[in-house]
Design a protein around this nucleic acid. Structure first.
Lengths: 200, 200
DNA sequence: GTCTATAACTAGATAGAC
DNA sequence: GTCTATCTAGTTATAGAC
């Protein structure tokens, strides 16, 4: 059973890490507001009060998940792009990274998108800031490709958001029990995106 | 104010229609579980108990929104595709329709995607069935284009889901106060998708 | 068709023992 | 670090008056 395996793996994790993992699963399946502190405690086999030793509130758990996910994404984005010599190579690297991230950190990516509205106003603002910084990097990648004569793009802003929506959608539908391996999906998406921008 | 205008328009609607409209706005902004029956009643200027004269439960309101949205989409999909002579023309018509629907019925489309998990098990199964029928129509459109030698697609299933994610994403980011008019967005998306499938 | 009043239950969070 | 016990408030939904 996948469940038993997940349990065995989580036994080797710290308490806070186990809480994060369980919260991620529940927030994905039922949403933040659809998950009670009691639900979360039950999934962990502890009492609700015990959770408050590790996190001051349910909202703090959500924010913690967001911060980790957004920061890891931003870090790895720059590593991925840095590996490409031309804008076309950088775009291929970016799409492959973005798709693979949305598969490997599927729950993190899904929750970081679907539960934005469940953040309190200040937390929401902060995460929108991180998201905007990420999106700006993609726009600049596309604009550089246009300047270099490698891409043919009518509207960089529109194209960047279209590409991001397409690639982030992977966390919506991908399943490990599916037909395609992560690497195959990542390569196919990179091909589609490069055609989309008419890369030479 | 947009709010005052929405209120004036809703005054001419039936009670059930006004409830649907208010629920749509709240479910989009806060989610189904993040919206209480009290919130909804307050937005309508009535007491919570009054809602139960029009709908038997909060879930019934959500299901009603889903049914209307999914049925309208399915109907208009066939009208849109029927207007094209070739697979390429049909695909352009489909993308234009799908994007324009996700702009004009933005809240309906957004909620019908984001709140799938808030449906009870039998309702969820029913909506997944409707969604699958819609997706199947797109796959068949792409497959017909490949058979006719008009599209070059390595994996029809993967490409269809990528296109759908990209186009449905419009309901996530579009705003009427933005830079681009709906028609412009629809045309640009159609161009991008036709390049994606290497349409002749 | 909307109200008041309320039932029956669940929510997030805390106090303090162990 | 986890527990029992509990607080306060909020949840969906119903009964029955007007």
């Amino acid at each position: 059973m996948a469940k038993a395996k997940a349990k065995a793996a989580s036994d080797r994790l710290g308490s806070s890490e186990r809480i994060r993992l369980a919260a991620l699963g529940l927030f994905k399946a039922r949403g933040y507001h659809g998950t009670s502190v009691r639900d979360l405690a039950e999934a962990l086999g502890i009492e609700p009060a015990s959770l408050y030793h590790h996190f001051p509130s349910k909202q703090a758990i959500l924010v913690d998940l967001f911060d980790r996910t957004m920061d890891i994404m931003q870090d790895r984005l720059h590593q991925a792009i840095a590996g490409g010599a031309t804008p076309a190579a950088q775009l291929r690297n970016f799409v492959r990274f973005h798709v693979l991230f949305h598969i490997e950190c599927q729950d993190e990516a899904f929750v970081s998108h679907s539960e934005l509205r469940s953040l309190t106003a200040p937390n929401h603002r902060r995460m929108i800031g991180k998201r905007d910084r990420y999106e700006k990097a993609i726009r600049e990648l596309l604009a550089a490709g246009v300047r270099a004569g490698e891409f043919e793009i009518a509207d960089v802003r529109l194209t960047s958001i279209a590409i991001l929506m397409m690639c982030s959608g992977v966390s919506d539908w991908f399943t490990r029990r599916g037909r395609l391996k992560p690497e195959k999906v990542a390569d196919s998406y990179a091909d589609m995106v490069l055609r989309l921008v008419r890369a030479r």
